[in-house]
Design a protein around this nucleic acid. Sequence first.
DNA 1: AATGAATGAGTCTTCATTCAT
DNA 2: TATGAATGAAGACTCATTCAT
Lengths: 206, 206, 206, 206
Amino acid sequence: MTQRSSARERILRAAILALSSHGYAGTTARSIAALGGFAPGVIYYHFADLDEVFTATAAYTSELREERYRAALAGVTKAVPLIRALRTLYAEDLESGHIEAVQELVAAARPGSPLAAAMAAQTRQWELLAEEILARLLRGKPLGRLVNVPTAARAAVAYYLGMQTLTHIDGDASRPEAAFAQAARLAAAFDKLPALRRRPRPSRRS
Amino acid sequence: MTQRSSARERILRAAILALSSHGYAGTTARSIAALGGFAPGVIYYHFADLDEVFTATAAYTSELREERYRAALAGVTKAVPLIRALRTLYAEDLESGHIEAVQELVAAARPGSPLAAAMAAQTRQWELLAEEILARLLRGKPLGRLVNVPTAARAAVAYYLGMQTLTHIDGDASRPEAAFAQAARLAAAFDKLPALRRRPRPSRRS
Amino acid sequence: MTQRSSARERILRAAILALSSHGYAGTTARSIAALGGFAPGVIYYHFADLDEVFTATAAYTSELREERYRAALAGVTKAVPLIRALRTLYAEDLESGHIEAVQELVAAARPGSPLAAAMAAQTRQWELLAEEILARLLRGKPLGRLVNVPTAARAAVAYYLGMQTLTHIDGDASRPEAAFAQAARLAAAFDKLPALRRRPRPSRRS
Amino acid sequence: MTQRSSARERILRAAILALSSHGYAGTTARSIAALGGFAPGVIYYHFADLDEVFTATAAYTSELREERYRAALAGVTKAVPLIRALRTLYAEDLESGHIEAVQELVAAARPGSPLAAAMAAQTRQWELLAEEILARLLRGKPLGRLVNVPTAARAAVAYYLGMQTLTHIDGDASRPEAAFAQAARLAAAFDKLPALRRRPRPSRRS
DNA sequence: AATGAATGAGTCTTCATTCAT
DNA sequence: TATGAATGAAGACTCATTCAT
């Protein structure tokens, strides 16, 4: 990494920090600079304006996290280990502040704005990742016939986002935990569902 | 009395309008006043500050919609008509601007703020409503054994919120439609699941 | 008193209350009305504007107190009982809020303003009262030759005002008490000074 | 460093100007900026809010003047030269606007406010200065036995403040002059009072 | 006489952004 | 590259005052 890119990154990291600790409205040039330990003017040397900082932050945090998610979920084909992995990843998200930063950016994005476009591109990436995993999971399962994978993937992303939002407003950290516990139970049941077979009358066999 | 309540309501209606058309950040005393056709000062005659306007707006829009939802979902006990009803209600939400207003308020609420408390109270109401309906739906179904109703109800609310958020940022109205279509398919399958039986013996035998 | 005058007085009493409890800046039409238990509009029925309320309040409180002072100091010709009486009057002033109201009005009066004129007129009255008493006190005393009564009277009023101001900013109620104690000591000494005689050598006589 | 301190000082000087010419109520961010020839925003770059400007102004003007007073009164041990020096200092105070600024700040300070605390601290300094001088003056004088120095010092400060206040509301500049003339007469008499010492050469007398 | 809703001007304050150094 | 002072355009909010009832 060159000097310039590291300066850019310092700003982006400071922006994530600012977003997660002060919220979007509290993320001003001054608050970013204060958290990053540099002068406000620096921001304008590396970015045209704050909007650009926000879109860049969105891309930055998303890439970082997606890389991690892909690595952790690479070989997963069953629901139970999937849920287990997601639980860990969620904890990481939470602790790193990324989850709050994304939450704030998504919330602040006005429809049609460049930030909204950036966030839409990012969530699209997450939908694609969810599609891959879902496809793997449903392969050969009877439920697969009922489910349109892209739609379900989007639902999964939507749910994830919404859960964050609810946690954000009521601060009840036990709710995501309960959700993961519930998901684990459903996952166990799901993994026990028999795989799909060619013949429509399995009773004959037995 | 009519005068007083109508002045307050005029402000709240203008606030909903402002939230849905300009977003939270764009909902200033001036923009509310402009949309409502009154002087900015009026707002401060009826409310202590904008925060109070926002929390009141949250309560106002939530009550209005919940009433409508309860009426429309009163007798529903099957998944198919439930999804059908929700589709209609969603269309109403969308057209009225309520959905956008809530989206903006939820998004803008800082954790721990009075607005967050108000929004948490409101979403709690929606969770309760979802619980009632889910309980009705799962009664006697084998799936009911796997599912914790409050957790599932919260998931439903989270999903609804998240779906709005995604639509908000990518403006793709076809996605909720696809989601409803998918939900309809699942609902049909769900309604066909055999109900649970009282008698534990015959099942054992066969 | 007619109805009208009692309404006026209700306003003036509320204004004194507001001045002493909220200060000049906090004495708004609304705060006066709230303290008096009437609608803000009433004020403008009886007075042209708030300035008029303030000048009327100055006159009202001054008259009330001056009456009381004159009554209490009528027959006083010696320093010791004078100080004793002033001590009591000061306690009354303090408790009634009049002292704070005057303090605020004096402080708020811009040079050249109608309020300043009103306050100047009022303080002039107090100077005249002080002159009367001082003249009585100094009659026949050798100190009388050194002292110009009007100037000393003004000094007394100035001192009284300034002492209030100091107490106002540091809230130390023990200071006026200490001042009265000191004054009492000086008064005792003063009363013991021999009265003036024609001849400079009384010793000769004896 | 020079830059920074000069920017702060420019603001403080403008604040003194604004206070002395427009009064406390008229000393707004705008009026300060207009008088100082800078944008209102500058004020908030150097101070958190106007209150901080006011307390800083109080400290600034007080320090400036106290320095001057201490210098001018350093060697003074007699009443006559003291009064003469005070007369000059008062004229300076008047002309510089400091006296008006202090008057406005003292008057505007609400009991218990930070400004009141600042003003109380300042007046305390003046009381200490007065104590020093009074102690020097009374040393060896019989009057010293009757007078509690701190109380008398406070009385002196109170009188000074009150005299300013009276001048402020009636604009009669001849009054302070008359007061100084009167004070000069008393000072002359005071300086002629015999010192307290037992043995100023008793042998001569006998 | 009284009410209380409404207005509009003015205040403090915040910030993105610029720019001289 | 970096700094940090300065600017100007808002925004929230307050309040004297008016006016229809």
